[in-house]
Amino acid sequence: MKKEILAWESAALLTATLFTLNSCSSIPKGAKAIQGFDKEKYLGNWFEIARLDFVFEKNLNNTTAEYSLNDDGSIKVVNKGYNYIKNKSVASTGKAKFVGDATEGRLKVSFFGPFYSGYNILALDSDYKYALVVGKNLKYMWLLSREKTMPEAIKKDYLKIAKDLGYDTSALIWVNHN
């Protein structure tokens, strides 16, 4: 009897773990990732213009993301920033993979081994200069640019998309690049 309970608990834990890992690559309700995505054009350096703050980016300015191809076809992600409280630069390297078709802007990214989280590109201009990226839920959002600024019209359009999905854009941290 005790072995049966342990086996059932182990199966339940495994199922819950798999569900959690799978759901980490999700997209917020109502959000649609861009279609016709070209990963080659997306590679390179991006400046973080604004974000919904979370623990791994707390107190960071001058935040950037650099995307390049790994040998296995996945995307290498190097996030950098400057912690203005601790007065030091920080960097984190991860890996991104497509959730489905590589022409859809839906990826999952990991900085911690087998644990992935959603990386969903909801808006991207035709020149791949400006992007609206969201995570798995309404707690994660970034405005990215190839330059240290973003035109007001594009910023306004991207913020409207986010607001319409339920994001609290008033809580955005506007990143200083100096």
Rank of each mutant, 00 (worst) to 15 (best):
F54A: 10
R146C: 03
D71M: 06
K39E: 04
A162M: 12
D157Y: 02
I85G: 02
N87I: 13
V55C: 03
W8T: 15
E40I: 07
L122I: 12
G118D: 07
L21Y: 10
I154V: 15
L124N: 05
K155Q: 10
L143V: 15
L21S: 03
I154R: 00
K3I: 15
V99W: 00
T17M: 12
P151Q: 04
F56R: 06
Y128W: 08
K86M: 11
V175E: 11
T149W: 01
W142G: 01
A131H: 02
V109C: 01
A153Q: 07
Y119H: 03
I161L: 01
F54D: 11
E66N: 11
N45S: 05
I5S: 00
G81N: 06
F98I: 09
K58F: 08
I173H: 13
T169Q: 02
L159C: 04
F112N: 08
N61P: 07
E147V: 03
A91E: 13
G135Q: 04
A16P: 00
D168N: 11
D168H: 07
N83M: 08
F54Y: 10
A171I: 07
L52V: 14
F47H: 12
I154Y: 01
F19I: 14
N59Q: 03
L14E: 01
Y84M: 08
T64K: 10
L107A: 04
I121M: 02
K160L: 03
N79W: 01
A171S: 14
T149F: 02
Y128N: 05
E4H: 13
N70P: 02
I173V: 12
E66Y: 07
N178V: 13
D157L: 02
V133Y: 00
W174A: 08
S10L: 15
I154E: 06
K80A: 12
N62S: 11
A91N: 14
L52Q: 07
V134E: 06
I34L: 00
A96L: 06
L43N: 01
S92M: 11
S23N: 07
F111W: 04
A153M: 08
A91C: 11
D157A: 09
D72E: 07
K41S: 10
G166W: 05
E4D: 14
D53P: 10
D38E: 12
L6R: 06
S68Q: 09
L52R: 05
E40S: 07
D72V: 15
F37V: 06
E152N: 12
